[in-house]
């Protein structure tokens, strides 16, 4: 392998190791399930690896990665709708081991939020996760989702409204949630 290729490979590995935790969390919110999240991140990074020569030298490789992940999520969702609308029991959330009442309640909240997210249409879920977890601007979210800013606003607003309408979650949100 030439020096250039070696350097690019090392650069990619460094990028991947550094971004892995954050990508896993985002994927988890998108998919609601541990293994699905791992699959999504792995598939995303495989595509990034293929295009790394171009991506690695781009001004904002993160934007490319987000776009790939959202595309993959949207594509998979089109094919396997039910998988995402019905969170699986092995999510690890429902069976959270809780040793105090507060932890139990906290796990319940998380579970409620993930279930609520899973019930959102995928575009609304993507908009909510990118805007409020990734903390992207509307423009950045639109770039990641490959749509207009107006569509992002609409999807995010609908998503938030639906989340607030869910019993339990609405109370958490309205009263400041658990911190």
């Amino acid at each position: 392998m030439g020096d250039g290729k070696q350097a690019r490979s090392e650069e990619f590995q460094s990028f991947m190791v550094g971004r892995w935790p954050r990508l896993m969390r985002t994927a988890f919110l998108l998919t609601g399930e541990q293994h699905a999240a791992e699959d999504l991140v792995q598939s995303t990074l495989e595509q990034v690896y293929v295009a790394w020569r171009r991506v690695g030298s781009a001004d904002d490789p993160e934007a490319y990665v987000r776009r790939v992940m959202i595309n993959l999520h949207a594509r998979k969702h089109r094919r396997r709708l039910k998988e995402f609308l019905a969170p699986r029991d092995d999510s690890g959330l429902v069976h959270e081991v809780a040793d105090t009442g507060d932890r139990i309640a906290q796990a319940d909240d998380r579970s409620a939020l993930l279930e609520a997210l899973a019930q959102l249409p995928p575009r609304q879920r993507e908009a909510v996760v990118l805007r409020y977890w990734e903390d992207l601007t509307e423009t950045q979210t639109a770039e990641a989702m490959g749509c207009s800013v107006g569509t992002v606003k609409s999807n995010a607003a609908k998503g938030i409204t639906k989340l607030r309408a869910i019993p339990g979650l609405a109370g958490m949100v309205t009263h400041g949630g658990r911190k």
Binding site: W20, P21, M24, R25, T26, A27, F28, L29, Q34, A37, E38, G92, L93, E96, Q106, D109, R110, L113, L114, L117, V128, V129, Y132, W133, D135, I160, L163, R164, L169, M172, V173, T174, G176, G177, R178, K179
Partner: peptide, 19 residues
């Protein structure tokens, strides 16, 4: 409300096993 949703998302996201 939106701040709290961000906090709830962050809380839920922490549940994933990073590995």
């Amino acid at each position: 409300t939106q701040t709290d949703i961000a906090l709830l998302l962050a809380d839920a996201a922490d549940e994933v096993e990073i590995g």
